[in-house]
Write a protein that binds this DNA or RNA. Sequence first.
DNA 1: TTAATACAAAACAAACTGTTCGGTTTTATT
DNA 2: AATAAAACCGAACAGTTTGTTTTGTATTAA
Lengths: 188, 188
Amino acid sequence: MDRRQRKTRDAIFNAFSRLLSKKNYNQISVQEIIDEANVGRTTFYAHFETKDFLLKSLCEELFDHIIDTAMGMPHSHSRLTCGLEADSVFLHLLRHLQENDLNILALLSSENNEIFLRYFKSNLKKLIVSQYAEKGRLKKSNLPEDYLVNHISSSFVEAVSWWITRKMKETPEQITEYFLATVDMLAL
Amino acid sequence: MDRRQRKTRDAIFNAFSRLLSKKNYNQISVQEIIDEANVGRTTFYAHFETKDFLLKSLCEELFDHIIDTAMGMPHSHSRLTCGLEADSVFLHLLRHLQENDLNILALLSSENNEIFLRYFKSNLKKLIVSQYAEKGRLKKSNLPEDYLVNHISSSFVEAVSWWITRKMKETPEQITEYFLATVDMLAL
DNA sequence: TTAATACAAAACAAACTGTTCGGTTTTATT
DNA sequence: AATAAAACCGAACAGTTTGTTTTGTATTAA
């Protein structure tokens, strides 16, 4: 990828993150973004069709980043599903979040966390299906697998959200413990 | 309240709901709302400061409506906390949702459900605190009460969301069963 | 060096926002 | 029934945002 492209792309992402840490997504205009990023109007629209696409791209990029660094498998989180113990996956994710990536925290803090967390959750579902469901590690219950996977994903995302909004006072291990305490009779 | 006020207020609410069932909240403009509601521009802003306030008002109104009709306690859901069995509260809520109030479904279906559900959830938390926590009916655990209440509320809201997005194929009783299966070892 | 590509700056029409003004209809009061 | 208050409408407004186009410059890869 052209050095120039990567440069403006990053400039836009960073500007966007900075703005997200100050105000709501809805209240941010493209104008503000290009001002903050010091980038031409034309350039912005050459990179991102709309503000929504920018957000989506940022989420994708951050999710890939989280997964890659948390798992130590650069450039291929499609291999996520291979040979990792379940709780260590969750623990790794939490540990990585604790390392305070500026961009990630901007997306997770305050009003905007739902945007990223929705994206996060949908990817988490896939992960859980491949990690648990396909390998028959969900405890048998009367619940539809669909429902169960959604419940577990939500519970984890909610745990993360709860943790972040309260300034991450607990350790990742503690949060993992909380999380498992609510779902470990359903799956492990 | 002046009949005229109630009338335009309803017209705006209904128009807004109709639009919400078609497109995203973000993509709806005030212009569209007042066109759909057949209401003057000035009138809209006399009623609602911004689009966000309109949304908030609609959520409040619908939540009150759900609570009132589900509990049969018109005009006072502050007395919600008196003498109702816990699971019947959930069941009542689900039964009421099944009666297909147009406005509520508009807020719950598709892309927009998070908006109302966040509001729903925060009220649910209060309800759970007063129903369970204050009466010592949360099973003892290592979890902070805060965390537990959030988990239970989220689980219910997620259950509702799951139910609705899949066209409410199950009965309210069935969903209550699913919900309780995931949390009844934590509280009852 | 050359040709492609990424960028900037400015201008553009179209739409949206929130407010103001003058005038009309409805409601509650007497 | 008469009147005053309140709610409404329509039009116009300045300001902002959006997404596109155009013209020209700088950077990159070949």
